[in-house]
């Protein structure tokens, strides 16, 4: 099943986050800010590019990809084993 694209955002683990702010300067869209509770993500601005994940020293940010087969109109169903 293909996840709802609109709801996919970077995962930020506030327990691992040390609030260093490196991700703020790395984000080309200015989608991140630092609040009292930690990193705040502006979901509208986020382009899911991965620069924040790359710079985070504690691995607190993850941008996972769901790996799925394309719908049947693109490709006949296959055994992927």
């Amino acid at each position: 099943m293909i996840p709802d694209e609109e709801r996919i955002v970077p995962e930020i683990n506030s327990e691992l986050c040390v609030r260093c702010g490196d991700c703020l300067s790395a984000c080309p869209e200015g989608a991140l800010s630092l609040g009292e509770e930690g990193i705040i993500l502006d979901e509208e601005k986020c382009a899911y590019c991965g620069d924040c994940e790359d710079i985070c020293p504690t691995g607190a940010i993850a941008l996972p990809f769901a790996i799925v087969l394309a719908p049947l109109e693109d490709e006949e169903e296959e055994d992927v084993g």
């Binding site: 293909i2 996840p3 769901a66 799925v68 394309a70 490709e75 296959e78």
Partner: peptide, 17 residues
Amino acid sequence: LRRRRGIIELVDVRALQ
């Protein structure tokens, strides 16, 4: 394959196999 936000869709499974 096709990439969208947070999704990698495998389009040509035969080629990847």
